[in-house]
Amino acid sequence: MQQPIQPSCAASAPPARRRLAPQVRVAQILDAALVEFSERGFAATTMDDIGRRCGLSKGGLYAHFASKDVIFEALLHRSLAPPEWQEPPVPPVEAGTRAFAQWLVDRLYAGLLERPAAVVTLRLLAAERGRVKDLVELWEHNVVRPNMALLADMLRTHAARLGLPPSVIVREPWLVIAPVMYALLTQMILGHEPAMGLDCLRSSHVELLCELLDPRERIASENAHQNGL
Rank of each mutant, 00 (worst) to 15 (best):
72 F>C: 09
72 F>A: 14
72 F>Y: 15
72 F>M: 09
73 E>R: 10
74 A>Y: 05
74 A>I: 11
74 A>H: 10
75 L>W: 10
75 L>P: 12
75 L>M: 15
76 L>N: 11
76 L>I: 07
76 L>E: 07
77 H>N: 15
77 H>T: 13
77 H>M: 15
78 R>F: 03
78 R>N: 09
78 R>E: 15
78 R>G: 07
79 S>H: 15
79 S>W: 12
80 L>Q: 11
80 L>N: 14
81 A>T: 09
81 A>D: 09
82 P>C: 11
82 P>K: 14
82 P>M: 14
83 P>N: 13
83 P>V: 15
84 E>W: 14
86 Q>E: 15
86 Q>H: 14
87 E>C: 06
87 E>Q: 12
87 E>M: 07
88 P>A: 08
88 P>E: 04
88 P>I: 08
88 P>D: 10
90 V>F: 04
90 V>I: 13
91 P>K: 05
91 P>G: 01
91 P>R: 02
91 P>E: 06
92 P>W: 02
92 P>N: 06
92 P>I: 00
92 P>K: 06
92 P>R: 04
92 P>L: 09
92 P>F: 02
93 V>S: 09
94 E>M: 05
94 E>R: 10
94 E>L: 03
94 E>S: 09
95 A>V: 05
95 A>I: 06
96 G>N: 00
96 G>S: 02
96 G>P: 00
97 T>E: 03
98 R>K: 08
98 R>E: 10
99 A>N: 07
99 A>Y: 06
99 A>G: 01
99 A>Q: 12
99 A>V: 13
100 F>W: 12
100 F>N: 06
100 F>P: 06
100 F>A: 08
100 F>G: 04
101 A>R: 00
101 A>C: 08
101 A>E: 04
102 Q>A: 14
102 Q>S: 14
102 Q>H: 03
102 Q>K: 14
102 Q>I: 03
103 W>G: 04
103 W>N: 07
103 W>E: 11
105 V>G: 02
105 V>K: 03
106 D>G: 06
106 D>C: 02
106 D>M: 03
107 R>I: 14
107 R>L: 13
108 L>M: 14
110 A>Q: 15
111 G>M: 11
113 L>S: 03
113 L>C: 05
113 L>D: 06
113 L>V: 01
113 L>M: 09
114 E>Y: 01
114 E>T: 02
116 P>F: 01
116 P>T: 01
116 P>I: 00
116 P>D: 01
117 A>F: 01
117 A>R: 04
117 A>V: 03
117 A>E: 12
117 A>Y: 01
118 A>M: 08
118 A>Y: 05
119 V>H: 02
119 V>D: 01
119 V>I: 11
119 V>E: 00
